[in-house]
Write a protein that binds this DNA or RNA. Structure first.
Lengths: 238, 238, 238, 238
DNA sequence: CATGAATGAGATTTCATTCAT
DNA sequence: GATGAATGAAATCTCATTCAT
């Protein structure tokens, strides 16, 4: 008896999980609008109506997935503790650590990450609001963090909110290339994080003594558009 | 006779332009999927069928707009000439100049910018490919530019492609906030560009002499999630 | 052992009754089509499948309820005995008595009455036939009764079937207003029955001697549509 | 040119009319819930989508039809003028006239009448409200009319609202039998109206002098349920 | 060229009923 | 008997695109 009940409950959970997994995959593959409920149930091997036993509809499910991602993110960053960031060296190490932590989140939740970065916006007004709230939250957190670093004399005084936005953008695009598009797949995650941290801290500038070697500075040829300066992009689609 | 032919031709062009303008606006306002062909023709004041005399369909038109944006971008950056970037000071000034130039492009083409950043991805596989090619192009250009700066001894040796990606992300998100979401609307464009350039060059690190004032460096308390550490995000949608 | 069997049987009967009660209520509240089987079982607190152990389906249950109402009605009127309707006074008293009897049936079975008057028709062709047969039966009975009254010289000769139909209509609408819509709730049941009986017998006409007082008869102004002669009714629904 | 435009406009009107006609017929035949949009378009011979060019949906169309009926009714009765109802004879003639007028409305709009009497209630809450408002309006009008007759000494003092309700019921059921069920089809419309008017005025009672002939009054046998006193009605449906 | 009515494929969603446990 | 998850047929409605006028 007890066993039977467990079995049924487990079956239910299994099905729920299967549906979510299938939906996540297909959303990640095709995006929200191209994904049909029929595809989801087909992949799981259940009837169309079954879907609606577990989810109120396609949109609510999508919202749930997006929120799961946001939740994971928020949970992760809200756990960070920065007790003793006394020196730049310590800061660098810490930043590297949390950078890797975050990167792993994205890598482990590749499909959710794809979903978020491909179509979190534009599906529904309510979603949009939610996502924008999320960004505000991240900006605020990061700006406060930066300001604190300044208080400690670790970084320069600057527009900390703008800095936060820039930082988010940096990370975002790298994530997109690494996880979503997989164009950075051949680069070590560690190297990437390292790069981001160093760049965040020091920018690109050659250190001061270089100024004493102007002989190194040659004339720079026009550089951009190395492939095809007048490159034309496809214009027609069916 | 001749006059009539011209008039007719002009009318045609006018209509073409009107349709494109209307479509651009509505795509920017509502996104691709929420935009109905009926809305576009209604705004222009022509019949539904007329739309198809000027465009092969909704998707091709959208593709055209996205490409127009890409084209504008490519045209802009491919014109940059960096003849004499002899010193960091010159570089800084130059970067500021082209940064403003780019920013103005986005501001002037606000609708196209919105379209691109909201939904360039996820509408169609072909679009996606095209956009990805575009990004590759930008990365390559930027990486080459960065490498050249290094050659001139202006910047440090680093992973220039990764640097390019980071830079693109930085700019992208700032643009999104400034042009698309208008959350940065109260910040001067000049300040923003300045910030980006300085950050690109120097990062955030306090310069060296600070190290001689360790008394400024206090212990940093945990800082993130200033609003609500356990923040819960909405989970249900209809 | 024996006790268990009884208990089980009783349980079954109880469940059957519960389901019927719940269904009756919800049908009365929402009508046939708005009522979902899920709502019925939820109110009773049993599983969806259990419903089908007691009833063959939603429609058969509804039919059963409608028939229960018809049965009650038929039982009531078939018990009426009219042994000595010798005078109009006796007739009036008798009519009042059976009128009240009927009225109490409707009041006591308010939900069944609502069900019958709201949706007995239009749910199923078979139901419709059944209901029509019922009406025929009532018409026939009433016509025979009326004809008998005539035989006894109590009422005028007229089209007794038509009279029966009229009478049914009179009663029907009053019931609808009193029981179903409750717009007559502030009127005493006794007064209503009284009114119906008197009207059945004497109509509305002022008795003869009035004709000797023609001074009472003033010119009648146009009277209908006291609220708004050109009243417009809502035309659109979603 | 002009001709072409007219043709198109006419075609449109024709199609609109066809859809309405088909819908009216099928609603009248099968009722609201059994009627499918697919049946309507099939009968007209147009595509499914065409339906939605002319009507916002099935429910709004139904509402439109119900309201058309109500409108016709209101228009009819609001035009009645009762200038000189000086005597009962004149009243009788007038009532007969308007009774016929109303009856003809129902006969001419048989389908709308069927729709109204079969399913005006129970399809939608908004409809219900509308219909109930309509009944209130009719009751009010009729009660005022009756009261006026009393003011003129033509009829007895009574509960005029209740009288109105009774009258509406009388008419309603006769209409249902005559128009909807067609069980009175063999009776002359004129006779029916006559009957209703006489009954309204004089009821059924034998006039006074009959009381002097008690020999006519025989004992009445039990009369009701002439067909089958214990008649059982069908109980099961699929 | 322009029109705009018509098309119809296709997607979401509901819910009475079934049936394995 | 009871359960309740699963079923799947069926219905409504949308909208990009076509094509006769």
């Amino acid at each position: 008896m007890v066993k039977k009940r467990i079995t049924r409950e487990e079956k239910r959970k299994q099905r729920h999980a299967n549906l979510k997994t299938a939906a996540t995959q297909i959303f990640a593959e095709q995006g929200y609008h191209e994904t049909k409920v029929s595809q989801i149930v087909e992949r799981v091997g259940v009837a169309q109506g079954t879907f609606y036993l577990y989810y109120e509809g396609k949109k609510p499910l999508f919202g749930e997935l997006v929120n799961e991602f946001l939740q994971l993110f928020v949970t992760t960053i809200s756990q960070w503790k920065f007790a003793n960031l006394e020196t730049l060296d310590i800061l660098e190490v810490e930043l590297h650590r949390i950078g890797l932590q975050l990167a792993n989140l994205f890598v482990n939740k590749k499909d959710l990450t794809k979903i978020f970065f491909r179509e979190a916006l534009g599906v529904d007004e309510v979603f949009d609001t939610n996502v924008r709230e999320f960004y505000e939250y991240v900006y605020d957190s990061l700006a406060a963090f930066n300001e604190n670093l300044w208080t400690q004399g670790l970084i320069e005084k600057m527009n900390f909110r703008l800095l936060a936005i820039q930082t988010v953008g940096m990370i975002e695009r790298v994530i997109k290339e690494f996880v979503v598009n997989e164009t950075l797949a051949n680069t070590e995650l560690d190297e990437i994080v390292d790069h981001l941290v160093l760049n965040f801290l020091s920018g690109t500038r050659k250190n001061i003594q270089l100024k004493t070697h102007p002989e190194l500075q040659a004339a720079a040829p026009a550089l951009l558009s190395p492939k095809s300066p007048d490159r034309t992009l496809r214009t027609t689609w069916k």
